[in-house]
Amino acid sequence: MNIFRFAGDMTHLASVLVLLLKIHTIKSCAGVSLKTQELYAIVFATRYLDIFTDFISLYNTFMKLVFLGSSFSIVWYMRSHKIVRRSYDKDQDTFRHYFLIVPCLLLAMIINEKFTFREVLWTFSLFLEAVAILPQLVLLQRTRNIDNLTGQYIFLLGAYRAFYIFNWIYRYFTEPHYVHWIPWIAGLLQTLLYGDFFYYYFHSWKNNKKLQLPA
């Protein structure tokens, strides 16, 4: 494992912890898209089907369990916790899951490294992760009020994606035959989706102002 991959995993972990911390301590999920969180739960559930069959390292298994556990607990908090669920912006968070799920599934059935149940679902999880942030970005655009924790959550997610790209570049040059077009293209697309958000995030940070997206 190289430093970029590790930094990517750590910022990913930090993003999830920031979100859980916000929900658990403030008992509020205002500004957080349940649609995005449910998509992430699907992403991890379909990607980590190999969790009990293929052992890579203790680190990998542990992180998989953390991402599965945290994504499902966030969904549980937002749907079922009697206080947290009241702060959910249900009327604003109207993005439809299946607009993203169905095309990703069809695409994964056409484009994959091997047409098997696990490979197709693994590819589906990559495509879905690439677009899963969209409901969250739409919600931010609509409500326009972004508290610090929600802003940090999205910033950390974007940082995670950026580190993964550096990791792929590093591995491409250091490991023979390391070529994986599907995750690279999906990952690049995903990172680009954060571009706009990053621009406003740095802008507000530089001017020491509260993060606000344009209408």
Partner: peptide, 10 residues
């Protein structure tokens, strides 16, 4: 399940 390709990233 068939053996999967090597997916060592998260």
């Amino acid at each position: 399940f068939e053996t999967s390709l090597d997916h060592d990233e998260l």
